[in-house]
């Protein structure tokens, strides 16, 4: 998955969670840019992202998820390692 594809998929997740079709994301988007991105919504966002990409963030990573770019970077790393790990089984 490219950074751009991940950003596109993330936009779907964000629009669902914040119920706002007008959201457009850049790697620099932070909680300040999105209405309703409070601490409770943040947890929802984390879990919705995990479910969408079928990954799981580690506890140690949670604190580093400050903007959309952070989400995208971690997703990319996780999706890539998963594919590598899974490939022998295929």
């Amino acid at each position: 998955m490219t950074e751009q594809e991940i950003l596109q998929e993330l936009t779907v997740v964000f629009r669902d969670v914040f119920d706002d079709e007008s959201i457009t994301l850049t790697p620099e988007t932070t909680a300040d840019d999105i209405n309703g991105w409070d601490s409770q919504a943040h947890v929802t966002l984390v879990v919705a992202t995990e479910m969408h990409f079928k990954i799981k963030f580690r506890t140690a990573e949670l604190e580093s998820l400050r903007n959309v770019g952070d989400f995208a970077r971690l997703i990319r790393a996780r999706v890539t390692t998963m594919h590598v790990a899974e490939s022998p089984a295929r």
Partner: peptide
């Protein structure tokens, strides 16, 4: 347990 440590949620959001 991750949600517990992160947000004291006994029931995970999903």
């Amino acid at each position: 347990p991750v949600r517990w440590h992160q947000a004291k949620q006994l029931i995970a959001p999903q």
